[in-house]
Deep mutational scan, measured.
Amino acid sequence: MSIQHFRVALIPFFAAFCLPVFAHPETLVKVKDAEDQLGARVGYIELDLNSGKILESFRPEERFPMMSTFKVLLCGAVLSRVDAGQEQLGRRIHYSQNDLVEYSPVTEKHLTDGMTVRELCSAAITMSDNTAANLLLTTIGGPKELTAFLHNMGDHVTRLDRWEPELNEAIPNDERDTTMPAAMATTLRKLLTGELLTLASRQQLIDWMEADKVAGPLLRSALPAGWFIADKSGAGERGSRGIIAALGPDGKPSRIVVIYTTGSQATMDERNRQIAEIGASLIKHW
């Protein structure tokens, strides 16, 4: 067993022997301040990774656009098919120029040779490549099948209805392509620590998230040296922004954090800054 596999296998073990965790309302004060600064709703939840206990939450059962955070769930569904012998990570998928959609920095470079399922998941999570996500959605049967996968996990809230990039439209009061912070946090925890996926697939999923290259201005910008984070960000229309993450000190994750916002007129930089400040408060009061 590799060191990384050992780390993920012992996530519940280490967490069980940690000192009790206590909620700190100071972080919620910052979440509410972010709402004021952005002029928009902000949803927040913080779960203990081992027990699933909610440590703090704000608007945990209000719907927010998922945006690209759905790509972690998508690759979880792909990995479940791999575990069941219905898919192979090494299978190569070929596609054409007509398949390319807006923001496809990886797939646009491989029109000639195609990409493997493993490479597509890596591109979808680490670079948020939209064509990679659409190609992977095709392998599982489309958005409705991802929703069905989530329902089978016990998540009857999260739903995907459309493809990239239309799913980022974020129309107010439109339930399409949305989740709730509580539902997303619980589902992410199941994917990373539950028995739904094999140990190898859980490790692969967290490795992809740990290698995320496009979430630097968010929670990662607030992390002290030595902290662990595996995350996936999302951005959408109407001032929408979000991030889902597993993080913790001492090089291992111990909490799940989900943050979503929508309806702001603020710039992307300002949305990023507010999420980073929430992260800084979380870490300060850990």
Rank of each mutant, 00 (worst) to 15 (best):
154 G>C: 15
208 W>C: 07
229 I>D: 07
171 I>Y: 00
128 S>C: 05
250 D>Y: 07
226 G>H: 03
264 S>F: 06
52 G>S: 04
249 P>H: 12
182 A>C: 12
65 P>Q: 03
168 N>P: 09
169 E>W: 03
237 E>R: 13
56 E>S: 08
133 A>N: 02
209 M>W: 09
112 T>K: 13
201 S>K: 06
42 V>L: 00
59 R>F: 15
283 I>W: 12
100 L>K: 11
79 L>C: 06
120 L>A: 03
51 S>W: 11
235 A>C: 08
47 L>K: 02
122 S>G: 14
148 A>R: 13
172 P>T: 05
174 D>H: 07
166 E>N: 04
212 D>H: 13
286 W>Y: 06
77 A>H: 14
71 K>W: 11
195 E>F: 00
32 K>S: 02
49 L>G: 08
100 L>Q: 13
200 A>I: 02
105 P>M: 15
43 G>H: 10
158 T>G: 07
77 A>S: 07
233 S>W: 08
39 G>F: 02
104 S>R: 09
65 P>N: 08
117 V>I: 02
25 P>V: 06
27 T>E: 02
179 T>P: 11
55 L>M: 04
196 L>R: 13
210 E>A: 11
153 M>Y: 14
203 Q>T: 09
27 T>Q: 08
245 A>T: 14
223 L>W: 01
91 R>K: 05
185 A>K: 04
164 E>G: 11
116 T>E: 12
130 N>E: 00
253 P>G: 11
272 N>L: 07
28 L>K: 07
225 A>K: 00
24 H>Y: 05
80 S>W: 02
270 E>R: 10
45 I>C: 11
46 E>R: 04
78 V>Q: 12
135 L>F: 10
95 Y>M: 08
219 L>D: 13
206 I>R: 12
147 T>F: 13
189 R>W: 12
285 H>W: 02
216 G>T: 07
154 G>Y: 04
103 Y>E: 01
136 L>I: 13
88 Q>L: 12
262 T>N: 06
215 A>H: 14
129 D>N: 11
43 G>N: 06
201 S>T: 11
148 A>W: 15
117 V>M: 07
254 S>H: 00
243 I>Q: 00
168 N>Q: 09
117 V>C: 07
124 A>I: 13
130 N>Y: 05
71 K>N: 08
82 V>N: 04
258 V>M: 15
223 L>R: 06
170 A>P: 11
105 P>T: 10
269 D>I: 15
66 M>R: 09
251 G>I: 05
57 S>M: 00
159 R>P: 12
153 M>W: 14
132 A>K: 14
107 T>W: 01
64 F>I: 13
237 E>D: 15
125 I>P: 14
245 A>Q: 03
209 M>E: 06
176 R>S: 04
155 D>F: 03
212 D>N: 01
84 A>V: 10
180 M>D: 00
66 M>L: 09
113 D>N: 06
138 T>V: 06
172 P>K: 02
167 L>C: 05
129 D>I: 15
128 S>F: 09
120 L>N: 01
258 V>Q: 13
156 H>E: 02
284 K>E: 04
188 L>V: 05
26 E>H: 01
110 H>T: 15
84 A>P: 08
161 D>R: 02
26 E>C: 14
100 L>R: 14
141 G>T: 00
144 K>N: 08
211 A>F: 00
125 I>E: 14
274 Q>A: 02
176 R>F: 05
175 E>C: 09
113 D>Y: 06
163 W>I: 14
259 I>F: 11
63 R>V: 12
184 M>Q: 10
134 N>E: 03
38 L>V: 02
202 R>Y: 12
84 A>C: 07
108 E>T: 06
223 L>Q: 14
37 Q>P: 13
105 P>E: 11
202 R>C: 08
209 M>T: 08
117 V>N: 04
72 V>H: 01
186 T>P: 05
174 D>F: 00
198 T>A: 10
30 K>Y: 07
86 Q>A: 10
192 L>S: 06
32 K>P: 06
40 A>M: 07
107 T>G: 01
133 A>M: 10
100 L>P: 12
179 T>G: 12
224 P>L: 03
131 T>E: 13
216 G>S: 10
54 I>L: 04
56 E>P: 11
115 M>T: 00
179 T>L: 11
261 T>N: 08
198 T>K: 10
214 V>R: 04
100 L>H: 15
111 L>V: 04
170 A>C: 01
249 P>E: 10
76 G>C: 12
182 A>R: 12
58 F>H: 15
145 E>T: 02
127 M>I: 06
63 R>L: 09
171 I>D: 05
109 K>N: 08
143 P>V: 10
92 R>L: 09
96 S>G: 05
216 G>V: 01
85 G>D: 05
185 A>N: 03
262 T>Y: 12
47 L>T: 04
196 L>P: 08
81 R>W: 01
276 A>Q: 15
31 V>I: 13
99 D>R: 14
96 S>F: 09
195 E>Y: 00
103 Y>F: 01
211 A>N: 00
193 T>F: 05
279 G>F: 12
90 G>K: 04
193 T>S: 03
40 A>D: 02
135 L>K: 12
256 I>P: 12
118 R>M: 12
166 E>H: 14
178 T>P: 09
259 I>Q: 04
281 S>A: 08
83 D>F: 02
129 D>Q: 15
100 L>N: 09
266 A>W: 15
263 G>V: 07
123 A>V: 06
122 S>Q: 14
114 G>D: 04
86 Q>W: 06
127 M>P: 03
203 Q>W: 10
178 T>K: 14
64 F>C: 13
163 W>Q: 13
142 G>T: 01
186 T>E: 03
138 T>R: 07
224 P>V: 06
120 L>I: 06
31 V>A: 01
150 L>D: 00
31 V>D: 14
62 E>F: 15
280 A>M: 02
221 S>R: 04
213 K>D: 07
87 E>C: 14
202 R>M: 03
197 L>H: 06
140 I>K: 06
162 R>V: 08
147 T>R: 15
130 N>T: 01
33 D>P: 06
215 A>I: 02
231 D>V: 08
168 N>Y: 08
91 R>A: 06
257 V>M: 01
181 P>Q: 02
252 K>I: 04
112 T>E: 10
245 A>P: 07
35 E>D: 07
170 A>S: 02
187 T>W: 06
248 G>I: 14
193 T>L: 05
250 D>E: 04
226 G>D: 12
180 M>Y: 00
262 T>H: 10
180 M>S: 01
144 K>A: 10
143 P>T: 10
186 T>G: 09
223 L>E: 00
254 S>F: 02
102 E>W: 10
260 Y>K: 04
32 K>M: 10
177 D>A: 08
45 I>E: 03
278 I>F: 15
104 S>I: 02
57 S>I: 12
104 S>G: 07
93 I>D: 15
200 A>Q: 14
81 R>M: 00
82 V>Q: 13
201 S>D: 09
255 R>G: 05
68 S>F: 09
201 S>P: 11
131 T>A: 13
125 I>Y: 15
118 R>D: 14
161 D>W: 12
104 S>E: 05
257 V>C: 05
41 R>I: 13
210 E>I: 11
121 C>Q: 10
93 I>W: 14
101 V>T: 08
91 R>T: 07
76 G>R: 04
60 P>A: 02
197 L>E: 09
71 K>V: 08
273 R>Y: 14
171 I>V: 02
192 L>E: 06
270 E>G: 15
241 R>E: 11
111 L>W: 10
81 R>C: 09
156 H>K: 02
231 D>Y: 05
285 H>C: 05
